[in-house]
């Protein structure tokens, strides 16, 4: 970890001082030890604020949209999942890759403070380090050795791309990391197996928890429209009223809007303060696309267009009934 931080600082310092970039986006320490926040650096003095630890979970790629309005060339640290988002931003013409230098950071998996807190490990946390599959944690009570997987974010447990899929420079050789939850359509299957009444109850209950904070939309590298219908009440498409139908409307439209483009980074479910199973909507669409249109590769190949902006004459047609009437 320390090694990585010095590499990060070195490369940021070099590129800023040689004017290769005029802005660097990376992680800095938050108020608590279990917090890492995005930081934006233009001054060489601030380079020292860069950190890399087990809480650098934020997907930084989306900040490029705004930052590129004010800066010519940006250096950014991206993990595997972030790099998928970056590719999709490029594909959606939101970011010009020529203006970005991606420092690829292989990721071993991030630690979920909520999971630590459930085991009462968060309060007196002093220090935390990962050694392969082990988590060394120092609290007031002393040092403890834990199994890292027990405390990783759910999205990290399912991660398929711990290594950046696109980068200008790779800061470390790739990590070898297997996702342990391999069959992750299992959760979707479980919902599909219910009958329609049960499904409706399930989702209504989920959606009605929503406080419409739009955190899920704001973090998403794919939800990148400049003007969102959910911010633009005057056009009369969306309402802010706290009724079930508006929550349902928001969630269905959000999920459908990212259909075929969602890179399955899991950020939306992670940030939701109400723990709504947003990923199970996204994954349903991903499952359908995989089954009907072949392998799902959003975020992997920026030059190949998304499923919904494409078609084939011989596409599967679930609607065709007989030609002509009785």
């Amino acid at each position: 970890m320390e090694e990585m931080i010095s590499k990060m600082k070195k490369i940021a310092y070099e590129d800023l001082s040689t004017k290769k970039v005029d802005r660097v986006i990376g992680f800095g320490k938050g108020d608590f030890i279990y917090e890492a926040n995005p930081i934006f650096i233009s001054n060489l003095e601030e380079v020292d604020l860069l950190v890399w630890d087990l809480f650098c979970v934020n997907n930084l790629s989306k900040y490029l949209i705004n930052e590129l309005k004010n800066y010519q060339k940006i250096g950014i640290f991206l993990k595997g999942c972030d790099s998928l988002g970056f590719n999709q931003l490029v594909k959606d013409n939101k970011v010009d890759p020529d203006n970005v230098i991606v420092y690829g950071v292989p990721c071993e998996g991030m630690i979920d403070p909520n999971k630590l807190s459930k085991k009462n490990l968060l309060k007196d946390l002093r220090y935390l380090r990962r050694v392969d599959e082990k988590l060394i944690i120092v609290t007031k009570q002393g040092e403890k050795e834990l199994i890292a997987k027990d405390y990783e974010y759910d999205k990290c447990l399912k991660c398929k791309h711990p290594n950046p899929v696109v980068y200008s420079e790779l800061l470390e050789s790739n990590t070898l990391r297997n996702s342990i939850l391999t069959d992750d359509f299992e959760e979707v299957d479980r919902i599909e197996d219910m009958n329609s009444e049960e499904r409706y109850e399930y989702w209504s209950e989920q959606f009605s928890k929503c406080i419409r904070c739009y955190a899920c939309r704001n973090i998403c590298p794919v939800c990148s429209c400049d003007k969102c219908i959910f911010d633009n009440l005057d056009i009369g498409v969306s309402g802010k009223a706290k009724v079930d139908s508006e929550d349902q409307f928001f969630h269905i439209v959000r999920a459908y809007h990212v259909a075929g483009r969602c890179v399955d980074c899991g950020e939306c479910s992670r940030v939701c303060p109400e723990s709504i199973a947003i990923d199970k909507l996204n994954r349903k669409i991903i499952k359908d696309i995989t089954e009907i249109y072949g392998e799902y590769d959003a975020g992997l190949n920026p030059s190949k267009s998304s499923v919904l902006v494409n078609y084939k004459l011989e596409d599967f047609d679930p609607f065709e009934t007989s030609k002509g009437g009785k």
């Binding site: 329609s196 049960e198 499904r199 399930y202 209504s204 459908y256 259909a259 909507l281 696309i289 009907i292």
Partner: peptide, 12 residues
């Protein structure tokens, strides 16, 4: 195709 399937998934 995707949308009808999604609505069905939500319970319609």
């Amino acid at each position: 195709t995707l949308f009808t399937s999604l609505l069905n998934y939500i319970g319609i």
